[in-house]
């Protein structure tokens, strides 16, 4: 058996049937150790979210397996909690109740009612949302909703935390704030995290390793970049750090030179020669 904490072994994913088949992922292999922070970056449509959904168990892999802590993953479960891009809080429940739903379900047998209550409060305190326990999601800002989403996912004490573009829908200032928060939490509880992102700075700032994916169809892992910067990282200091900038450049180079995204216009009657050659260059 594999000795890694989380292994993604030879995962393929084909959507559709017969002639309409499209192979989204081809032979994805990734090994993640306990406590690692991994970012998966790539152009939109390259199947990043598909990888995450397969790890979460929300989508079955066509071939290959995902093994977490010695056990094969084939259905969703609380050991792999997900923070969704659009928070996905249940709007009819308060902030407290949203987290309580997860906690009461996950720790029904292992914790008493009082312990669970305290655990809910502690989880919300960790993301600084203790002031809004009785508010409904509609009454709090987008950043706060995402905090609660993170609290809900963390409260389940997952073996691996899956973040699906968690800060994508937030404005730049709120995003920076929440990134700092996540860094702090990760330093505190040393959780294993896989994050999908398309933000280069975010990837370099937060991750231990950045997994860069090639363009679809048949997307796979192009390069893996090890980020050897001491933690905790400070975004202001990092701006001047030559190493940080080199990493940043490496990711940018991968995304904009090696995997340059070519939008093929369906409406155009004939592909222009310039476009066709670009496409060839990209796939080469």
């Amino acid at each position: 058996m594999s000795k890694h904490y989380l292994s993604i072994e030879g995962v393929n994913k084909v959507f559709g049937q017969g002639n309409k088949q499209s192979c989204v992922l081809k032979n994805v292999n990734l090994h993640i150790e306990k406590g690692e922070y991994i970012s998966i970056i790539g152009h939109s449509g390259c199947g990043k979210s598909t990888v995450l959904n397969i790890v979460a168990g929300l989508l079955p892999a066509t071939d290959g397996v995902v093994i977490l802590d010695g056990k094969e993953v084939n259905s969703p479960g609380p050991d792999r909690s997900v923070v969704f891009q659009n928070h996905s809080l249940l709007p009819w429940l308060t902030v407290y109740e949203n987290v309580a739903l997860a906690v009461n379900k996950t720790f029904k047998k292992t914790k008493t009612a009082k312990e669970r209550h305290e655990w809910i409060l502690k989880s919300l305190e960790m993301v600084h949302m203790s002031h809004a326990l009785d508010k409904r999601p509609a009454e709090i800002s987008g950043g706060m909703k995402q905090r609660v989403g993170i609290a809900r996912a963390l409260a389940m004490e997952p073996k691996v935390l899956l973040l699906d573009e968690p800060f994508g829908a937030l404005d730049a200032l709120t995003r920076a704030h929440l990134q700092d928060e996540v860094m702090k939490i990760q330093a505190e509880i040393n959780s294993t995290i896989i994050m999908i992102t398309h933000d280069v700075d975010e990837a370099v700032l937060l991750s231990d390793r950045i997994v860069m994916m090639t363009n679809g169809p048949e997307a796979t892992i192009g390069e893996i970049l090890e980020i050897d910067l001491p933690k905790p990282r400070n975004r202001i200091e990092m701006a001047d750090n030559p190493k940080y900038n080199r990493y940043r450049q490496a990711v940018l180079r991968f995304l904009y030179e090696k995997q340059r995204k070519v939008e093929v216009l369906v409406s155009a009657e004939k592909p222009k020669p310039a476009q066709a050659s670009l496409k060839k260059a990209a796939s080469a």
Partner: peptide, 18 residues
């Protein structure tokens, strides 16, 4: 029912009644 809520329910492993 939005797909998101269904996914949340799946990740939380809610049973049919819940």
């Amino acid at each position: 029912i939005p797909e998101d809520y269904r996914n949340v329910a799946k990740v939380l492993s809610l049973n049919g009644y819940e």
